[in-house]
């Protein structure tokens, strides 16, 4: 039964974790830890939401904890250059999923986390602030920066974006 559940959701959850983790190996670690939590707490699942949503939430929380443990969620030092969005147009559909994923993974950990939580998972800034233990305003400003950086990447896809980020 556990194996069946794993087979059913492992691929989707791997993609979720890849968006948060900087490398595939770390994403697999998060998947492993997340599924252990899922199986250990499956009895607590109250069926008030879809099972996939519940598992996804566990994966996101596990990723958050993982990145925090690795001290990857500390504030990064960035140059103002990151906020200078160059004018231009882009077509998101022209990019493959791997390319989009690569761009998200290139974001600084804190920006990546805020961007994922807000843009893809659909959390609001207040919830993100509580999850990351930052203020709502900080969440907003970090999201704006992350979004600007991503847009720069999309516009300048041919010349890979040089993110001036010092990862701690």
């Amino acid at each position: 039964m556990q194996r069946e559940l794993y087979d059913l959701y492992a691929k989707k959850m791997m993609m979720v974790c890849l968006r948060y983790a900087p490398t595939t190996f770390e994403a697999e670690d998060i998947v492993q830890e997340g599924f252990v939590k899922v199986f250990a707490n499956i009895g607590n699942f109250k069926k008030d939401c879809p099972l996939e949503f519940w598992i996804r939430k566990i994966m996101v929380n596990t990723a958050l904890k993982y990145l925090r443990q690795k001290s990857l969620l500390t504030v990064s030092h960035e140059t103002e250059e990151a906020e200078n969005v160059s004018a231009g147009n882009y077509n998101l559909d022209a990019y493959s999923l791997d390319e989009l994923l690569g761009m998200i993974q290139r974001l600084a950990p804190r920006y990546r986390m805020v961007f994922n939580l807000y843009a893809i998972e659909g959390y609001n800034h207040k919830e993100i602030g509580e999850m990351l233990e930052i203020s709502e305003g900080t969440s907003k400003s970090q999201y704006s920066r992350a979004r600007a950086i991503l847009q720069n990447m999309l516009v300048n896809q041919d010349k890979p974006y040089q993110e001036h980020v010092i990862n701690r």
Binding site: R3, K11, K12, L92, L100
Partner: peptide, 21 residues
């Protein structure tokens, strides 16, 4: 941007390594 990213990543899948299970 957000809507299109959500659509692209909503059902996206990636295969974990064989040893993860």
């Amino acid at each position: 941007l957000e809507q299109r990213l959500q659509q692209r990543f909503q059902d996206a899948e990636a295969t974990p390594g064989p040893d993860v299970w």
